[in-house]
């Protein structure tokens, strides 16, 4: 195998893994802090991608879509939490599954009513529509490098926010021992709303970033949702660090698996998940497992 081909696949794998991190970190935090399974998390990704498509078509500028996805995601997430999810924290898993399944159906129907059922492509911003020469024989898309950079920036901001701020330490406390939060006199409702809003914004940002990399199509969140579950199982639930390393691992394994073992396309990540379940059922990065 040639070196530049391998390098391209590794970069693709890292970039896919970082997108997965944006999605699965929200999933794992929402579960870790509130104990809610959000199957509609993949639909939030889809909404972000369609938002990017709509904004790009209206204004011609993708870079407007990114802050719009984040701001819209924060608002939308806070609204969903306030109106629906708040009632389901203490309900059974089955009720949560059906609530979020209903949301998938409703989001897809809304998407179909507003923007139709066609496949669309979203052009990368003109400024980034060129290739960066990495070695003499190999160059890599500037937009993909920009996605890598944005995702890394978000990851760093998340770590700082969680490790260094008062709100972040409250979120960590809530994820480890939910009853502690009330004892400490913190406002658990505010923490829940913030976590849900941030999770939603991250998923929608991931969708907006991914829109130019693949086409935008109905049910596009489904595949990302399933793989994000694999990431959470592999990384360990409730842990952002676990989601980070798990997502990179899954991104690389999936991309390299598809490139070099064509017969087993797509199955590699599930084999990895099975191995992790056999070896460390709590996840690779679970604390004290």
């Amino acid at each position: 195998m040639d070196v530049s081909g391998l390098l391209a696949q590794v970069l693709n794998g890292l970039q896919y893994g970082l997108l997965l991190f944006l999605i699965s970190s929200g999933l794992t935090l929402v579960f870790g802090v509130m104990g809610v399974i959000n199957l509609a998390h993949g639909s939030l990704f889809m909404i972000g991608a369609y938002a990017a498509f709509a904004i790009t078509r209206l204004t011609g500028a993708l870079w407007l879509a990114l802050p719009a996805a984040v701001a819209g995601g924060l608002l939308f997430g806070a609204l969903l939490e306030r109106v629906l999810f708040r009632r389901f924290y203490r309900r059974e898993h089955l009720d949560q599954v059906l609530l979020t399944f209903a949301l998938i159906l409703l989001f897809e129907e809304a998407r179909s009513a507003l923007l139709g059922n066609d496949f669309h492509s979203v052009p990368a911003p003109a400024v980034l529509d060129f290739s960066v020469p990495v070695t003499a024989a190999f160059s890599y898309s500037a937009y993909r490098l920009a996605v890598l950079a944005v995702c890394l920036l978000v990851a760093v901001l998340m770590f700082l926010g969680i490790e260094r701020t008062r709100l972040g330490s409250a979120v960590r406390a809530a994820a480890e021992k939910p009853e502690m939060v009330e004892l400490l006199g913190l406002d658990a409702r505010r923490i829940h709303m913030v976590v849900f809003a941030v999770g939603t914004a991250l998923a929608m940002l991931a969708g907006a970033l991914a829109a130019p990399l693949q086409s935008v199509y109905p049910n596009m969140g489904d595949g990302f949702l399933i793989v994000s579950f694999v990431v959470v199982v592999v990384g360990g639930v409730g842990s952002v660090a676990g989601a980070f390393w798990g997502a990179l691992l899954i991104g690389l394994v999936d991309t390299l698996g598809k490139a070099y073992v064509p017969g087993a396309a797509g199955l590699a990540v599930y084999v990895l998940m099975a191995a992790v379940l056999l070896w460390r059922p709590g996840g690779l990065f679970a604390r004290g497992a």
């Binding site: 399974i37 399933i226 694999v230 599930y270 056999l278």
Partner: peptide, 21 residues
Amino acid sequence: ALSLRTRGFFFLMTTLAFGQM
């Protein structure tokens, strides 16, 4: 056999992932 190494939320995700496989 693999999914039952987990419980609750994990069981749900694991069965989902293997089902999609």
